[in-house]
Every structure is written in structure tokens, then in C-alpha cells.
Design a protein around this nucleic acid. Structure first.
Length: 467
RNA sequence: GGGAGCAUAGCUCAGCGGAAGAGCGACUGCCUGUUAAGCAGUUGGUCGAAGGUUCAAUUCCUUCUGUUCCCUCCA
């Protein structure tokens, strides 16, 4: 058997013509010609385009197997790589032997038909949808983004810190949490006070799935200077939208000796870097997205890469919204959080590119965000992307113990739970900043896909944990 | 958690108180170095479930289930 090549390598011209090669993959389409052969478009995930196989009728299993190979069937093909005699592809494989590995049972009901499907339907066949053009392209782009994130961080000498997914900090300050417990839920041990006795639970205390690696990674930034997390995160919010998941991946860089402005610069640099990687490396997939999914996606990515992000204070944004002349469902008032409609107006209508909103009122932000000198705002920032909304949220962290303590008290949080977090401010505290990038939201932006459930392989959301 | 939709063939949808339709797919034939192919034919449905109104319900009403989108939450 000759060498097994990726289709991407063959189409890219990495192999000389007339070389005997083996390709393996799945049939996208088969078309039989009376001239004595069949055209088989075979895909293996390595690139957007399938490779064309010419299967001559002289093959001994032509009638018995090859003519039975419908869309979705798997096969191993050996043949000669030749310049294509037809239009539409540079190379094709003149097969000398085809082993049909697996046929499709009942082709009429095979879910992935060679025709357009709705994303809603494909979600119901999540085990087969990576075989489609769209989800295959999403998969390559999401991988490109993930690799680019690690590359960006590595080039800037950040350390990747594996923060825990299970946490006993029940107040990480970012929404509802999933409980992790091995207690028998039909016979919960109780204390004298009539409360569940978690001292008998696996960890000896209440435990949850993390909503953020930030608090943990702050310990490492206080020693390694530049760190980041990249891993799954969990939110038990009952939110049913096209941009929320109960389980999603988040990138959380944290930098020491850095203020909010440097934090915003890092966020901008990172987004530009990873979207440029997609433009450079996934032209084939982007061409598909631009043609079939969102006709503005390439233009938008190029816009992000080539333009300066807008920076704007919350206070300024409130004034703009109030003077916009737009009728909003929710009123705009200094001191309240901006609604989706407000963020959309700013990012999509007012600015038309990503915008960094900074310095929010302290009462609508988390306890660990650094108090500004005005005593009213904290050094928080959100990066809003047109079409997606909030893609990044971050802040400069409060490094002054006395102020941190008063914020913890103000919010009625149990100080003892934060003893190790507070220690960081007792022992050689430094100014530091960080942010969280919703990874799937970045994939949405890079692909033009509309629903976050279509850019993660197996979406978990309220009421959804199939597959 | 709040709100609004939707549920009819493998898929996308039309229909409508009075005998279940189209396109795509699949299959068959013709044509064909084809490639989002063309022409013709065939196949294919417990009209989401359970109640109710009616001479008659896929159609109207109620409940349930599933699902989509928006808001809240945030990334």
C-alpha cells in the first residue's frame, strides 16, 4: 500500500503528479459516467475541498461495491495522482484499487444529504454533522483559533496555567454554579441545624464547577508575571439564547504590572492576532462562510485586523446613548448596566467595529475590580463585537488590601472564603489586570455563524445534554 | 426565570372545517469529464401527543411534550 496522504496535501501540490498515493475518507457525492467510470468526491476533514476520485468500471468491485457507495460511505483509495482533465480541481486520483470500508445503511434516510440543511436540524444529528461542509469548516476555524491563541501567548512568554474545574469558592462572582457532590441525593446527611452536612461530602465542603479560572490564575500571575488559562467553564444560568452555553471555553490572560489600558491593548492585540491567523490559514473555509453563511465575514475580519478598536468610557457611552435619538426598550441612565440593545447600538450602528467600554460604575461590577480615584467607577472593561455583543470582559484587579476588604464587606461576601486571594495582597502585591475571552464567541465572530450551539461540537445548555 | 413563535414525507416548507401537496433528497431510466449538473419517472406521511368542539378536525379550543428566537444573566 502506498503512503496515506491528507487530501489537503494532495490538493496543495505537495506530491508530484503521477505519484501513486492512498487517500481515505468519506464520500460526499458520487456521479457515474457512461464513459466507463465514476466520479467520487471524497473528503477527509483536512481541508474544505474534497478530492475527486476517478473510479474506472474495470475495478473488480465496481459493480458490487463502488456503485453502492452513496453519500457518507467510507473508503480507502489507491491510485495515481494526476492533473485533472476536468474543471474545478487541479488534481484528482485515478483509482487503481478502492476498498469500501463502510456503506451507508438506507441512503434515503441518511441524515446528511447532499443538499442544504438547517443548523437546527444538524443539531439533532450532532454525531454526523461534522461531515457537512459548514460544521467541518467551523471545526477547522475553531482549531485555527485555539492554536493561534496558544501561539500568541507563547510568543509573548505567557505561561498556560491549568486552573481547576472544581472549586470550593462558592462566590466566584459570576453567576449560578453547578454543584459537584457524591452525596446520595435521596438520603442527604443533615446537620443539627437541619442543613445539608457537606462535611460528609467528597471534598469535605460544598464544591462546584468553576465559573472562571481568574481567582486561581491571579495566584500564578503574582509569581510568573504573564499567565493565561484556556479551558472549560460552567454557568448554571437558565439562559436560552444564541450566544450562551452552560459549558463553554474561556481564555483568561492575566498580566502583572499592568493597568487597564495595557489590558485593553492586550485584548486588542490578541483578537487581531487570532483573526489574522484565520484570514491567513483558513481562506478556503472563509470563502465558504462568506458565500453561504455571512457575506460580510471576511470584510469584518479584515476590518478588525486593520483598524484600531474604539475605546470609550462608560460615562461617555451613556451620553452617546442618551443623545442618540434612538428609542430603546430600556432607558439609559448612569449607574445601570447597559442592555443588549445599547451595546448593539454602540458596536453596530455607532462604531461599526469592536469597541472597548471602560470604567463602569462600581455597583454593577464584581468586588475584585480596581476602584478608580473618582470613588464611583471601577477599572472594568468590556469588548463588544458587532453581531455578537460582549466577547471579552475584564478589569484591572484591586491590589490594595484595605480597599479590597471594604469592597468584600460592601457586597456582603464572606471574607474568610477569600483568605488566599487576600494573601496575594498581603505578600508583595502588584498592580495586575486580566480578561476573559469567550472562545466560542470568537468562533462565532470568525465564521459568521449565528448560533453558539453550532460552533461547539456538543453544546450543553439548559435542557440540552444529548450526545 | 420572563416573553413570542413553530411542530405536515429523510430534509425545507405550502395547505386548510369536507378524499394529504410541492421542491430537494433517495431510487430507476435517458444524457453526461461530471463537480450546487440536465430531462423523465418512482418511492415516500399515525399532519408531535392526549383530550375537547363539530355530522366531519391536519385545520378550531385546552393541556402536555419537543424545539427556535428574543429578554434577563454573562463570555
Amino acid at each position: 500500500m502506498s503512503k496515506h496522504w491528507s487530501i489537503s496535501d494532495l490538493l496543495a501540490g505537495k506530491v508530484d503528479a503521477d505519484t501513486t498515493v492512498t487517500v481515505k475518507g468519506w464520500v460526499r457525492t458520487r456521479k457515474d459516467s457512461k464513459a466507463g467510470f465514476s466520479f467520487i468526491n471524497l473528503h477527509d476533514g483536512s481541508c474544505f475541498d474534497p478530492i475527486q476520485i476517478i473510479a474506472p468500471a474495470e475495478l473488480d468491485n465496481y459493480n458490487s461495491e463502488i456503485l453502492q457507495a452513496t453519500t457518507g460511505a467510507s473508503m480507502a483509495v489507491e491510485g495515481k495522482l494526476v492533473a485533472s482533465q476536468g474543471k474545478g480541481q487541479s488534481f484528482e486520483v485515478q483509482a487503481t484499487a478502492i476498498e469500501v470500508l463502510g456503506l451507508v445503511d438506507d441512503p434515503a434516510s441518511y441524515p446528511i444529504q447532499p443538499k442544504p440543511h438547517t443548523m437546527e436540524f444538524l443539531r439533532t444529528v450532532a454525531h454526523l454533522r461534522p461531515r457537512t461542509n459548514a460544521i467541518g469548516a467551523v471545526t477547522r476555524v475553531q482549531n485555527c483559533l485555539a492554536q493561534a491563541i496558544h501561539r500568541f501567548m507563547h510568543e509573548r512568554q505567557f505561561y498556560w496555567i491549568h486552573t481547576p474545574l472544581i472549586t470550593a469558592s462558592d462566590c466566584e462572582g459570576a453567576g449560578e454554579m453547578f454543584r459537584v457532590s457524591t452525596l446520595d441525593q435521596t438520603h442527604m446527611p443533615m446537620t443539627d441545624k437541619g442543613e445539608v452536612d457537606y462535611s460528609q461530602d467528597f471534598f469535605g465542603k460544598e464544591a462546584f464547577l468553576t465559573v472562571s479560572g481568574q481567582l486561581n490564575v491571579e495566584t500564578y500571575v503574582s509569581a510568573m508575571s504573564k499567565v493565561y488559562t484556556f479551558g472549560p467553564t460552567f454557568r448554571a444560568e437558565n439562559s436560552n439564547t444564541s450566544r450562551h452555553l452552560a459549558e463553554f471555553w474561556m481564555v483568561e490572560p492575566e498580566i502583572a504590572f499592568a493597568d487597564l489600558a495595557q489590558n485593553a491593548d492586550l485584548a486588542e492585540d490578541m483578537l487581531k492576532y487570532i483573526f489574522k491567523a484565520v484570514l491567513d490559514e483558513r481562506g478556503d473555509d472563509l470563502a465558504f462562510f462568506n458565500q453561504r453563511i455571512d457575506k460580510t465575514v471576511i470584510e469584518r475580519l479584515e476590518g478588525v485586523v486593520n483598524s484600531e478598536f474604539e475605546r470609550m468610557d462608560y460615562t461617555e457611552a451613556v451620553k452617546i446613548l442618551q443623545n442618540s435619538g434612538k428609542k430603546f426598550e430600556f432607558p439609559v441612565e448612569w449607574g445601570t448596566d447597559l442592555q443588549s440593545e445599547h451595546e448593539r447600538y454602540l458596536a453596530e450602528e455607532k462604531v461599526g467595529k469592536p469597541i472597548v467600554l471602560m470604567n463602569y460604575p462600581k455597583d454593577i461590577k464584581a468586588f475584585y475590580m480596581r476602584m478608580n480615584d473618582d470613588g464611583k467607577t471601577v477599572a472594568a472593561m468590556d469588548v463588544l463585537a458587532p453581531g455578537i455583543g460582549e466577547i471579552i470582559g475584564g478589569s484591572q484587579r484591586e491590589e490594595r488590601l484595605d480597599i479590597l476588604d471594604s469592597r468584600i464587606d460592601e457586597m456582603g461576601l464572606p471574607k474568610e472564603n477569600y483568605w488566599w486571594y487576600r494573601d496575594l495582597r498581603r505578600y508583595g502585591t502588584v498592580p495586575h489586570s486580566g480578561f476573559g475571552l469567550g472562545f466560542e464567541r470568537a468562533v462565532l465572530y470568525a465564521t459568521g455563524m449565528k448560533n453558539i450551539r453550532d460552533v461547539i461540537p456538543f453544546p450543553r445548555a439548559a435542557g440540552t445534554a444529548e450526545f
